[in-house]
Design a protein around this nucleic acid. Sequence first.
DNA 1: ATACTCATGTAAGAAGTTACATGATTAC
DNA 2: GTAATCATGTAACTTCTTACATGAGTAT
Lengths: 190, 190
Amino acid sequence: MELSPTAYVILGMLRHGARSGYEIKQVVDNSTRFFWAASYGQIYPDLRKLAKAGLVAGEPKPQGGRKRTVYRLTAAGRRTLRDWLAEEPELLELRDEGLLKLFFAEAADGRRAVEILEAKRRIHERKLEQLRAVERDASVDLDADPYPYLVLRYGLAFNEWIVDWCERAKAELEAGGEAAKPRRRKSDAR
Amino acid sequence: MELSPTAYVILGMLRHGARSGYEIKQVVDNSTRFFWAASYGQIYPDLRKLAKAGLVAGEPKPQGGRKRTVYRLTAAGRRTLRDWLAEEPELLELRDEGLLKLFFAEAADGRRAVEILEAKRRIHERKLEQLRAVERDASVDLDADPYPYLVLRYGLAFNEWIVDWCERAKAELEAGGEAAKPRRRKSDAR
DNA sequence: ATACTCATGTAAGAAGTTACATGATTAC
DNA sequence: GTAATCATGTAACTTCTTACATGAGTAT
């Protein structure tokens, strides 16, 4: 039984106790969304598959008259999660439309390059605002589980670094781009 | 006629002249791969679609007896590329299995956290090696088009930053994780 | 009343990878 | 001769998003 990458997100989100599909989506949106998103169209079918595989167990748990099903890890599910954690992470994918446009900027005679950098900067500034809001609102017990906060700090520092880079690159381009060049290039054949 | 994101990669790769599908794949693997990959299964069908839409034109151009088709941008294709460059970049996706495992590390009592960080660090060090090889081998004319090199420098600096972060985070965890905590947390209710 | 949030789901389709197939040419 | 590279392609599949649908409870 092969699990989709997102199925592990679900297993992980149940590590501290039972949750509904709806809650999993909320938590994802406030934490892993920045490096791993998940939609309802993934979560609900995957929860079913996990239940069928015996890795999670669902039970009805209405919340104040609203019907709802919460899922918890089974022993097999916890084992699967631990085994997965013990495997070397491999998957790392990036799709960055801003970098792509910057790469091709010469096709518009370079006139868009600065705007592209500014737009990329804005994207990461928006991410920073979201992450800062998460940091403000979160009330996690760091002694019980410090790792989500460690990852949040990564997200903050990472996006700050990118914002800085965009500024530096913009300054460089506006200065004439000389600094962007390596010391020797065409002439280093020899 | 909607174009897939990867179709714009193809258009962009033809900005300086005609290329075959095979060549496009080579160039992608040595440049945009680090933030935008593309497989033959995407490139060849997309080239056909672009040709049918009149954005590129293919003509047979055998290379020393080997048959091969090169594609060039049509006027409409160049226009499409420029229009796309003028639009704000939006798409930015990240899938980072290492961060995900770090996030969930508590499910293995935190015992895997350092190993996960080390594995992530290795991933980015491998990327750095690849990017450095690209930098060594590339012989681009920076006066004609400095942007690919700018993006390459981004890739280098970006991966170096992540390697550093992994080291710092590892040191922090090994020191007991105290530094990872914000100054006040549970006690700041008030 | 009505708008919003909670809650669960499905259908359609886009996007992309992997694996396979084919065949010619070139380098050793 | 044989291994590697050049070159093009397709089929099956996985993954994921978007849009839609439904309905109940809660807040104003």
